[in-house]
Amino acid sequence: MKYIPFFGCMMTTKYPWFEAAVRRTFDNMGLELVDVDGFTCCPDPIYFQAHDKMEWYTIAARNISLAEELGHDVITTCSGCTATLSEANLALKEDPELKEKINKRLKKIGREYKGTVNVRHAVTVMRDDYGMDRVAKTVTHPLGGLKIAVHYGCHLLKPSRVMRVDDPDRPTILDNLITAAGGRPVHHDKTLLCCGRACMDNSISDHMVMDILDNVVETRADCMGLICPTCFDEFDMGQLILGRKYKKKFDVPVIYAFQLLGLAQGLKPEEVGLHLHKVKVDRLFEKAAG
């Protein structure tokens, strides 16, 4: 199977080690990624969508139309990109009038959105195409029962009408990926809580993030395992910022799901950029090794 990866902005510029983790793990599983030139920002589902939804649909449709030329499914690795491209793809497939309006705009640059490819998050490839049991077979360095507090974030799952990834109230897809990698997924009261990044009032999001971190600490998990770079921003860098602001100490390492898989497949921590995290993760490997 061939897939067209859509890494978006955050994972190419700010967290390129997540891109590296996805590329290396896909390579380890023999899944081919075909890069496409000319992708722009998805565009961002919060601010850009708030700016103008028609422009948001148009730029998303342009991105999808580039993938349509090759005919492979688009694989997203950031929950924000997943949200934008999935919603635009579904809306344009469902609404011929909207599609016509958008295509009038795209015509100005000689492009057309046809609605011939799917947009899917990379984790669904693990479950639906490759299979979690086969993923487990690629694991050479199981995570040694590392206790991982799963954090799904919002846009992988909701709105479920659009995303069609998993049950938004009882998701299992990340748990199963972590289990396949030899980790032990754990849940807590705030597992499904939003990271709050889109809130204008920081006092709201600060308390969401701290509540989640407090719950993770309470479960005595070794780290958080998540799938969204925006959530990562909130919990990794955010942990330091909130620690200073509210005089608290959490010390919860935060790891992206494909970094966990990469480690389990024998990649070195620096190959998936673990040394670049703000909250240090070194002690986890001592535990996994020992």
């Binding site: 902005c9 955050m10 190419t12 510029t13 700010k14 390129p16 080690w17 891109e19 590296a20 590329r23 722009t40 920002c41 565009p43 961002d44 601010y47 850009f48 708030a50 700016h51 103008d52 422009e55 730029i59 190959e271 950029g273 670049l276």
Partner: peptide, 30 residues
């Protein structure tokens, strides 16, 4: 809101590359 939409229209992306972006990408083999 305008800041982000302007960033997309002017640079094509929301999260801009910084001085370390290219170095990091190179170190990671990207």
């Amino acid at each position: 809101i305008q800041k982000i939409s302007q960033a997309v229209m002017e640079s094509g992306i929301t999260t801009k590359a910084t001085s370390v972006t290219e170095r990091r990408r190179q170190e990671l083999g990207l």
